[in-house]
Design a protein around this nucleic acid. Structure first.
Lengths: 152, 152
DNA sequence: GGCCGAATGATACCAGGTCTCATTCGGTGC
DNA sequence: GCACCGAATGAGACCTGGTATCATTCGGCC
């Protein structure tokens, strides 16, 4: 097994695939491993690169298709970084949450805040809109990076 | 003057440019007019299209450059639609706010909620992150579109 | 072992956006 | 009014992220 692979996470992803009735093909396993071992957010290009460095060949389209699949299974979510580019993060499919992203190292954390729904409901009432979806993204510096910064 | 142009908005945009020390060239004026008369959010391609239909020639790069400029002046903001594509909206540069976007007609409204900062501060404290930026986007159906739907 | 639909890879393609570079424009000093 | 210089422009090449097409291959099931 490759170094840095988180076997439990990989299994979790594979199981999500199988539970939804998709084949756990070698390619999808590979993508699952790459995703599970990514530290923080990543892009499709990033996965392809890592794959290539480990001498595994996998088509670009296949990676995109796998990410798509994982996105619809909510195992992975697509982020819009402030730069305007897209990235993906591994996350918990079971509860609604938002992402807190470290702008320095890219690590991401799921945050659930119980009060956001109330706030959104209030905005809906005030504006007359029927609010159907929302997205909250938080960007900052994680404790580890903040510590490293302070050390210098 | 073109039909549907909101002269006051156009002037507001031009003034923001001049205040920041940029030339209010005919091209930038044109972009300002197109932006001011857009109903809801729009893309660069959309502006180019409208320009072309009105037989005005303006380079693609110029439109992107103008939008960039307006974005840094905060007269316009870039949105990330749920589809993953980008759009721009005209908005108020003077106060921090978020966008409420009608998924049916694309109209967008600025919303300011006084309680969000407190919520974010709480998340920061709980997670240990130093939160530096955030983005909240709300998607739904505006009263007008909801009404039209109900009529059918 | 054979069948069939799902998965794959190569490749072409598309959209949104950026870069480059030669040209033109506009404001300023004279 | 004119010359000058930096800012703005347009054309087009280019890049990146992502999608569509299509022939081939794979995997699970009978």
């Amino acid at each position: 097994m490759r170094p840095g692979i988180n076997a439990t996470q990989t299994e979790r992803i594979i199981q999500a695939l199988e539970r939804a009735g998709y084949q756990a093909t070698p390619n999808r396993r590979l993508v699952a491993e790459l995703v599970a071992s990514a530290d923080g957010h990543f892009t499709a290009a990033h996965l392809l690169d890592r794959g290539r460095r480990e001498r595994v060949t996998i088509g670009r389209a296949t990676v995109f298709r796998a990410l798509d699949l994982l996105t619809t299974l909510r195992v992975v979510e697509r982020l819009d970084l402030p730069s305007g580019s897209h990235a993906y993060v591994l996350c918990d499919p079971d509860e609604h949450h938002h992402h807190l992203i470290c702008s320095s190292c890219g690590r991401s954390e799921d945050v659930a805040d119980g009060e956001l729904p109330a706030l959104i409901e209030r905005i809906g009432r005030r504006s007359g809109y029927r609010i159907e979806a929302h997205r909250l993204e938080l960007f900052g510096t994680c404790p580890r990076c903040a510590g490293a910064e302070a050390d210098r």
